[in-house]
Every structure is written in C-alpha cells, then in structure tokens.
Design a protein around this nucleic acid. Structure first.
Lengths: 352, 352
DNA sequence: TTGTACGCGTTATCAA
DNA sequence: TTGATAACGCGTACAA
C-alpha cells in the first residue's frame, strides 16, 4: 500500500503538496507542473488514499452501513445489494452490511450501535419488499435512506418501485392487446404492493371506459388452494387476460389454463411481475413480465445517501449509462421507480 | 459512544487499568475488586471498544472482506452471507462485502486492493456454486477461506457441501423405499456438483448390488428440451424413482409424470436438491429434498477465518446450538458439510 | 510551497 | 499493582 509520504519522496515534494494535489485543491496554490508530476507518480505507484487514516482528521470513514431485514427471504432481492455495492464502488464508498431478523428491536439497535462504532457515514435501511416502515430512534439523527420501503412519517428519503404503474402498465398492455375480460390474480397477504397494484389495475380499466368487476379479482396464497381459486375464476368469469401479482401467481394461471385446454399466449394473455425470477426463467420463460427495478433501487439509494453525506450532487460521469437515470437527486421524496415491461409472448392480439 | 476514558473517570482508575480489565489481561495484575468495579461501570455505560481506534495500535480492524461472485445469480445463496454475518456478529467482527462479476480479473484485484486499504483482517472468497477455484495472487499471502468452492492447489481452507453424499443419500433413500429403477436427472452444464453427485448415486446403487445403467441418467438443461428428455426417459426406462440435481429438474419430472397420468408420491418417488427454494415451496411443496447447507457454510467459514486470524479456537460458548457443529476447526481441509435430507412425501414405499 | 502539529481511542512501556 | 505517557497510523490544516 503506497502512502502519500512515498509519493512525496519520489516526486521530491512535501506531503502537504501531495495532499493538496490529490484532493484537487491545488488550483492557484501549487505550480501546475509540480501538480502534474505529483499526479503522475501517484498513478505510477497506484496510490489510493487510506480511508481509515483519512477518517482520523475528517471523521468520515467512507463506509456506509447497510441494514437489511432477512437478506435471504426474497430471492433476487440480492439485486438491491448488488446495485448498492456498484454505486458505492463508483462513488468511492464501502458497505458494511448487517442482517436483522426484522422482529427483534433490541437486536436492531445493537447492530446499529456496532455500525456507529465502526464510524459509518450513513445508513441504508432496506426492507425486502416494499412497505411502510418506521425508522428506529437510533437512526433518526443519521444520514439515512430507506430502500424498497417508505417512511411512515414521510420525512426520510426513500426509493421503491412504482407499484401503481406496475398495475397500470400491465393492465394497459392487456387492454391494448384487445383483452375484454382482464383478471387480477393478487396476493392474499396484506402487502403494500398488493393494494396499490390493484389501484393501478383499476385505474387503467376505468380510464378505458370499463367498469371494475370485483369477481375478476382473486387474491390467492399458495399451492392447491391458490390453484383452486384461480380455477374457479376461470370457470365463472372466462377471462381472456390476466395480470398476476408475481410469477408464482402466474404459474397458477398457466396450470389452471393447461387443465382447461387453454394455452397462454394463444387463447389467453398473461402479464406477471418478475420477482421470483426462477419461475419466469425455468417454468414459463415466455411469460411477459414487469421487472422490479431492484438493482436501480439499490444503486440510487446509495447515490442519494452519498450526496446527503457530502452535500454535493453525485458526479454525473461516475454513473453507468446502463441504468435508467433518476430524474433528480433533489426530486421530492419518496421516489418511486417506474418498472420495465419486458415483451415476451404471453400477451397476444385478441380479436374483439 | 462511551470511551475507556469515561469508564476510567467514573470508576476512579486510570485508562491503563481499564484497558487491562477490558482485554482480560488483569489476572494477577489488577486487584480483583478493582477489576470488578471497572467491569461494572463498563457494563453500566454500555461500553464496547472502538474497533477503529483499537486498530491504530493493533493493526487489526476486526473487519473481514467478503468477496462474492455475482451475489444475485443464485437465489438463496444469500443464506451463505446470512450465516457468515451471524458468525461475524457472534465473534465480534464485521463484514465488508464486495461483488465481482466473476469474469474480470482486473476488477477483482481492484476490489481486493480496496478491501486491503480498509485494513480487513482476512478474506472470504465465495463462489455461488461449488467449484474448483484458483486463488488470485493478491490473496495468496492473506488469511483466506474459500466458501462453497475448493482450492485447486489444495492449500487453502475451504468449506463446501458434501456433494458425494447428496447423491449417495438421495439414492439410498430411494433404494430403501423399495424403488427398483432409479433415474438420475442431472445438469447438462459441467458443474463440479453434477459429476460428484453422480458418483454418489452410482456408489449407492452398486453398494446395494445393482448395476449402473447409463440410460437411466439424463443430464438436462432448461425448458422444453429438458422436458422432452425427461419424457423420453420416462417412456423408455419406466423408472419408479428419481434423484434430481435440483428442484427445477424435479419440476420437469413432476410435469412429465403428470402428462403420463402418473402421480409423484404415489406411482413414482422423487428426491430433489433444494437450491432454488421457490419451486420446492410454491410448485411442488411436498417434494422430498436435500437441503444445501448454505447457512452453515457461511457460518463455519467465518469461524475458521477468525480462528486463523486470532490464532485461537472459536470460543464454544459463542456458537449457536441451532446448527450442526463442525467436527473440528483443525480438521483437515477442505471440509465438506453433509446435507440434510428433508422428509416430505414425494418418496413412498414401493412394493417389489 | 512546506514543516509540523493534530486528529482519535486504544494499547504498550516503564516508572513509581 | 497502578498510572502517566508515548506511541500507533496517515492524511489534513494552518502557520510560516
């Protein structure tokens, strides 16, 4: 590990000068030629500042604390962490991640205290599915961003999927395909997403001059009971389009359809939400899905947190062009990210 | 955050004494009564040492670097991280986790360099499925444990599932249920697990006096082609038992069976490996599975690493009794953890 | 442009 | 047995 001292010796200047140059405060203070020489030797030695040493004076460790409830509960929620880590890496931060089981408040406080002891500059507080969350007291006075959750009090920045438009976009897509009787296969659990996606579904229907039909909605759980409910909806309502809360629910539609001699992508159209990617990939790979923006949520959460900590906007050039830009870091919060509708072939033209 | 100084003042002693007591080096050096007073005030103030400050003198940060390739590729590999974090928490460590995409060597070196700059005490190098791995040069001289991978050179400690006994236990279970014609539905990709599980399958067969029949083995990929292959095996071999590489493969057996009027758990028996838990939970919840010990792998990896760093065995009292004990931290490495066979009801008695 | 004191809580040393 | 004090680390800030 090279230090400033080594650079100073090699370049024949003082560490003070090196410090100024490295931190880009050399304008009008250090001879440009010297500055260039310093930069060159720093590059040659592969110098990167030691964040721990730096933290002695600045009391900024460039470490972020990532608190996640049950990292393992939701498959592919790992994408949130991946996005967060990519953003941290791009902005020169590191993430200390800790789990909480989501039940023990005491435990959570312990973990927060430990993170504070390690001198983290700010916190990411992640829930593994979108919900209203109460920020624990021990985080109240800290730089904080809620990830895939919304602060109950509305005072903490948060980033989550745009649940309304998941329902809206899915339903519009089915309407545009010519579906006449569009069912919603929702979740039986009381999830924030469940209610809001239903609103989006309803809004899209009513916008196109249709009436909302309660009997076209089935909120189901798992396994056989779910399959039975979906089957009953098939038999009583004969829908030609389905919007499914997730791809596990979509699978029930596939199964129920198959048992009735109907083929998805020919006789009926289906749009699912892809949060358990395995089903969509392995079992119904042609399922038209709406992809949850987990990677983006993680990525932008870190960007927001870093900009809160430094007081500066995230430099644009650091951002990858592979992900959709967030309108503005100063946009009103909470921010909800509109999801992508992936075109596969379980939605086909319906003749009316 | 309380400091030693505060404790010293409150207890009316010097920080030196506090340090001795806190670090348990007071035996025969500090008056026991004083020591007790110090401990009491420390507890009262909720004191925990500041690891960053401590690292100034000891050059030990009590931070571990966790390098994982594509955290998001395998659902539920998150259990490895969960186990690792629980162990870290129990032993007083923190984890800095970074992703690498598994392809760019340059990138990986960057991440390792960054972790070193943050002064991590050791590294966990995790692959998201069991395989032979080459340890990058930049980690050669570091305390290191391979997680869910085995070092090619055999010189680095590693923990991974006991793939042989996955195949062996699954097949024995089917043999004991009375199955006569046991098929293996494997993976078409060249995975370490694939070959070794096959060995276990073969060993169990031969141990019970049977001959291995190549035609009872189908190594399949995904989707329709996989389903066709499994179907062909049904029609040509008429197996009554199936050992499936993972639960996605098991699903294909369910599907092929259903199309032939056969019912899993009545006409045929199936054992799968539960690494994509969603399928087993949502679609075939009664599937008899072998559960990969991801949590344990993460947990024991950290314990091993910590004991390598400190030179001391992990204190037994810190270990949770909820997970199977590792025979010995000094056991020869690599260590392979035997997996659990979960009894559900897709394996039933077969009359011979 | 540079020398140098200072930042931090802990630990090691050595004198009392 | 205890306590005062000097490291420890490397980068930063300020006076010169």
């Amino acid at each position: 590990m090279t230090t400033m001292k080594q650079i100073a010796e090699m370049a024949g200047v003082s560490v003070s000068t090196v410090s100024l140059v490295i931190n880009k405060r050399d304008k009008g203070r250090v001879n440009p030629g010297l500055a260039r020489r310093v930069r060159k030797t720093a590059d040659a030695l592969g110098y990167h500042p030691n964040p721990l040493a730096r933290s002695l004076r600045t009391s900024r460790t460039r470490i972020l604390g990532f608190i996640s409830e049950e990292i393992a509960t939701t498959p592919y929620a790992g994408n949130i962490i991946r996005g967060a880590q990519d953003a941290a890496s791009a902005t020169g931060y590191m993430m200390l991640t800790v789990n909480t089981d989501g039940t023990s408040k005491k435990d959570e406080e312990q973990e927060v205290a430990t993170l504070k002891r390690y001198g983290v500059d700010g916190f990411l507080y992640a829930k593994m599915y979108n919900r209203l969350a109460q920020v624990p007291d021990c985080l109240q006075d800290q730089p904080l961003v809620l990830v895939d959750a919304t602060d109950e009090s509305g005072s903490v920045p948060s980033i989550s999927p745009d649940e309304f438009h998941i329902g809206y976009d899915a339903t519009r897509h089915l309407i545009e395909a010519g579906c006449e009787r569009i069912a919603y296969i929702g979740a039986a659990e009381t999830l924030l997403a469940q209610g809001i996606r239903l609103q989006g579904y309803r809004a899209a229907l009513e916008e196109s001059g249709r009436t909302f039909v309660q009997d076209l909605v089935a909120n189901v759980g798992f396994n056989q009971p779910a399959l039975d409910q979906v089957g009953a909806l098939f038999d009583s309502q004969h829908p030609d389009g389905f919007f499914c809360f997730n791809d596990a629910r979509a699978w029930h539609v596939y199964e129920a359809a198959a048992r009735r001699g109907l083929t998805v992508g020919r006789d009926i159209s289906v749009v699912g939400v892809d949060n358990h990617r395995l089903v969509a990939e392995t079992i119904s790979p042609r399922l038209t899905t709406i992809e949850l923006p987990h990677y983006e949520i993680g990525y932008w959460s870190v960007c927001k947190l870093v900009s809160m900590i430094t007081g500066e906007p995230v430099p644009e050039d650091r951002l990858p062009d592979t992900i959709a830009p967030l309108p503005s870091m100063d946009a009103p919060w909470p921010v909800r990210i509109r999801c992508t509708l992936l075109s596969k072939d379980s939605v086909v033209p319906h003749n009316s």
